[in-house]
Simulated assay, not measured.
Amino acid sequence: MKLLGISGTLLGAKTAILVDAVLNGVKNNNPDVEVELLDLRGYDLQFCDGRDPSTYNEDTRKIIEAVSQADFYLIGTPIFNGSIPAPLKNVFDIVPPSVFRNKVMGFVANGGTYQHYLVVENQLKPIAGYFRAFVAPSYVYAHNDHFNRENEIVDTEVLDRIHHLAQEMVYMQNALKNHSHDLFKIH
């Protein structure tokens, strides 16, 4: 069982730190779950223009492959100007929607205002719904104040939400894996 955490930005470190914290929570409590961090800062992701995926550059093909091979997802995003950044939207555009179908998807986000958590509710959850993904009910939103100067998460409530999300995602994935033959049977 493979959990792919996607840090969906090219700027800053807080998003990858949040994603990594949840991945570590999963790994620490579920050593049988393979976790991988896909940090878009380390890739030359080409812009989705509708062409055959095999014609994109190597980094873009690696991203498509990593997303396609995962069993469930943790999507991390900063919130810029009340929205998700273009690199994350580009990943959603470049990967075939069928890849996400019937898979668990959880979210972490960070931003500079306390109201930006609404982007998870108003943008990310509807995108997951379009993909027909199963959305973890909990998510983590962290404000800049929840990090110290070294970008360490210091807020205990955020740390508790990270722990809860890690448990919830694995629970959902295990339940789906154990009952998928009943859920997706054609009658």
Rank of each mutant, 00 (worst) to 15 (best):
P85S: 04
T60R: 03
V95H: 08
R41C: 10
A86R: 11
F92G: 05
I84D: 00
P97V: 13
N29W: 10
F47L: 15
C48R: 06
V67C: 08
D39R: 07
V35W: 01
E34Y: 05
K27N: 06
E58G: 05
P78G: 04
K62Y: 08
A70F: 05
S83W: 06
E58V: 14
Y56N: 09
F92M: 12
I75H: 01
S68A: 15
V35S: 05
G82E: 07
E65Q: 14
Q46H: 12
K27L: 14
G25R: 02
Q69H: 13
Q46A: 12
G82M: 10
N28L: 14
T77Q: 02
D71E: 09
P97K: 13
C48T: 10
G25P: 04
Q69D: 14
L37S: 04
D32G: 14
E36D: 09
S83G: 13
I79F: 01
K89H: 03
T60L: 06
Q69M: 13
L88P: 08
K62E: 12
D52L: 07
A70T: 04
T77L: 06
N90L: 06
Y56H: 10
D93R: 10
I84P: 00
V26L: 07
S54V: 15
P85V: 11
P31I: 14
L38W: 07
D59C: 07
Y56C: 09
I63S: 00
N30K: 07
N90T: 04
V67T: 05
V95F: 14
F80P: 02
F92S: 03
S54G: 14
N30W: 03
K89T: 07
L38Y: 06
I63Q: 00
T55M: 14
I94L: 12
V26A: 04
K27T: 09
F80I: 13
E36K: 12
D59G: 05
P97M: 15
L45S: 01
L38E: 01
T55D: 12
Y73Q: 00
V67N: 01
I75T: 00
D44S: 15
D52M: 08
T60V: 12
P78A: 04
T55Q: 15
K27S: 13
D71L: 04
G25E: 02
P85G: 05
L38G: 03
K27Q: 10
D32T: 12
P97R: 12
L74C: 09
E65W: 10
T55G: 09
K62I: 11
I75F: 01
A86I: 10
P96H: 10
D71Y: 09
S54P: 08
Y43H: 12
Y43N: 07
S98R: 15
I63V: 14
N29P: 02
I94S: 00
D71T: 00
P53S: 09
D59S: 08
A70Q: 01
T55P: 11
F92T: 01
N29V: 12
I64E: 02
L74N: 01
A66L: 13
F47H: 15
N57V: 08
F80W: 15
F92A: 06
